[in-house]
Write a protein that binds this DNA or RNA. Structure first.
Length: 465
RNA sequence: UCCUGGGUAGCUCAGUCGGUAGAGCAGGUGACUGUUAAUCACCCUGUCGGGGGUUCGAAUCCCUCCCCGGGAGCCA
């Protein structure tokens, strides 16, 4: 029994302490009346299942209170747990006492005893976790968060808190949100531009788009590290897989090359899928039944097979020779388009796919240049239905190569001196990747829209609560 | 930002050729019932996204604005 003196329904259903007096606290999902008594379905958020409560008419306030209970009312109920005589549940609670904490006027309470569209539920951000599906997502998210930490802790990684407010731009990651305390009605200017010298930090600061560069610092001191925190992109993206605020996991490993990076990433995803199946079987069952019929088979397939692997150059050859007409032309040196990735991942390989060794011209400065001097040691992991879920690379550890890459890309070396120091002093081969946590939850749950897998989605034009 | 589909009852939607609106679910009342998406009967609910225009007459046609979904780009 937990410290707060009442049973959680999840535990109750698991242990089934028959003929004991127990007390539950939760919210009424539905009420059905029968001759002489009522059935109450109570959910306390601990699991998908409700507990069926039998409330006899002999209970005090039966007419005035119990017969008025509707979806959403909060209650405390104590009584004896008994085997249920009817099908549908193993046990039920014979109420001896029912106390109503709060009513929920059925005329105005938005949640009804029926299925709602996810679009509608998005409009009631503050009530949607009370539904079966969004509650299940919340539990899955919590479990997977813990699973992330467990994986890395088991592997000897250290958890690093990289800054949320940053003054370094992880080039190529996307548009940044500026953090400022300047008076927006009267912005000080210098040389016809805002004078960030007068701002809070004495320079322009932003919300982080990636903790990678900072994680490298600790990687090159502690060996293997990871970050897990909020990340912000000010892109005007209107899709089912982009958020302006999302959570990213970024491991960074010293003495590690791209091959090992890919092995680690594959093992990580498989670990989390297995973790979800082990710790959230009822939630996965629910998603499989109501959200995505093919979910369970797909997750099983992910665990059973190795991820497919292909280099960028091989991918280009494959796309060119497949005879399929694409809206965007296929040419070496240009980025793979969504349709190309989907074709390879969903039609050719039909499983997660790792594409590696992209042209250096389309990748950021920090990726390690391969011996061909044309490609870099980068990799993306694509999964069916979602697309890119991981992007990673071996980092350029050779100081002279890094300096020439900065110059090639027209970046100011002065801004990266600290980063270059990591190569000047005791440099080591190292690699890492970034996993979009919400995309992972989408993949594991089958939820089609990323706005359903984060409690409070932030997208262009929308930041409720 | 571009392409595309939408906005009608609390929710999900239908609405023909332009003639001021309907179903299912939810809700209310009653009946029945160890029920479990309960069942049956009856009842209630509308600024048809906003504004403008065409017309005798607009949910329907035209213009415009707002909002939402899906796709693309960008990426995780």
């Amino acid at each position: 029994m937990p410290m707060n003196q009442h049973f959680r329904i999840a535990q109750l259903l698991k242990t089934q302490p028959l003929s004991q007096t127990v007390e539950i606290r939760g919210w009424v999902r539905t009420r059905r009346d029968s001759k002489g008594f009522s059935f109450l379905e109570v959910n306390d958020g601990s699991c998908v299942a409700n507990l069926q409560v039998i409330a006899e008419e002999s209970l005090p306030h039966y007419e005035e209170e119990i017969l008025r209970l509707t979806t959403g009312c909060s209650v405390r109920i104590s009584g004896g747990l008994a085997a249920s005589p009817a099908k549908g549940q193993a046990v039920e609670l014979k109420a001896a006492e029912v106390e109503v904490y709060g009513w929920a006027d059925p005329e105005t309470y938005p949640l009804q005893k029926k299925r709602h569209s996810f679009e509608f539920l998005r409009e009631i951000t503050h009530l949607r976790p009370r539904t079966n599906s969004l509650g299940a997502v919340a539990r899955l998210r919590s479990a997977l968060s813990f699973g992330v930490h467990r994986f890395f802790q088991e592997q000897g990684f250290q958890y690093i808190h990289t800054p949320i407010i940053t003054t370094s731009d992880c080039e190529g990651a996307g548009e940044m949100f500026t953090v400022t305390t300047l008076d927006l009605n009267n912005i000080p200017r210098k040389d016809d531009r805002p004078d960030f010298g007068k701002d809070f930090f004495g320079r322009q600061a932003s919300l982080t788009v990636s903790g990678q560069l900072e994680a490298e610092i600790y990687c090159l001191a502690l060996g293997s590290v990871y970050t897990f925190g909020p990340t912000f992109r000010a892109e005007n993206s209107h899709t089912s897989r982009h958020l302006a605020e999302f959570w990213m996991i970024e491991p960074e490993m010293a003495f590690c090359d791209l091959a090992e990076d890919m092995r680690m990433a594959e093992a990580f995803i498989k670990y989390l899928v297995q973790y979800a199946l082990d710790h959230c079987p009822e939630e996965i069952e629910l998603f499989g039944n109501f959200v995505d019929k093919g979910l369970k088979a797909r997750l099983a397939a992910v665990l059973a097979q190795d991820f497919a692997r292909i280099t960028y150059s091989e991918a280009i050859d494959r796309l060119k020779s497949c005879g399929k007409a694409f809206a965007f032309p296929v040419a070496w040196g240009t980025d793979l388009q969504s349709e190309h990735e989907r074709y390879l991942c969903e039609e050719v390989f039909k499983r997660p796919l790792i594409v590696s060794d992209y042209p250096k011209s389309i990748k950021p400065f920090y990726m390690r240049v391969n011996d061909d001097n044309a490609t870099v040691a980068a990799m993306d992991i694509l999964v069916p239905g979602i697309g890119e879920i991981i992007g990673g690379s071996q980092r350029e550890e050779r100081c002279d190569r890094l300096i020439s890459r900065l110059a090639e890309l027209g970046l100011n070396q002065k801004d990266y001196e600290w980063y270059l120091d990591l190569r000047r002093y005791g440099t080591v081969p190292h690699a890492g990747f970034g996993l979009g946590f919400e995309r992972l939850i989408q993949f594991v749950s089958g939820m089609a829209n990323i706005r359903e897998v984060i409690p409070f989605p932030r997208t262009p034009g929308s930041a409720a609560l």
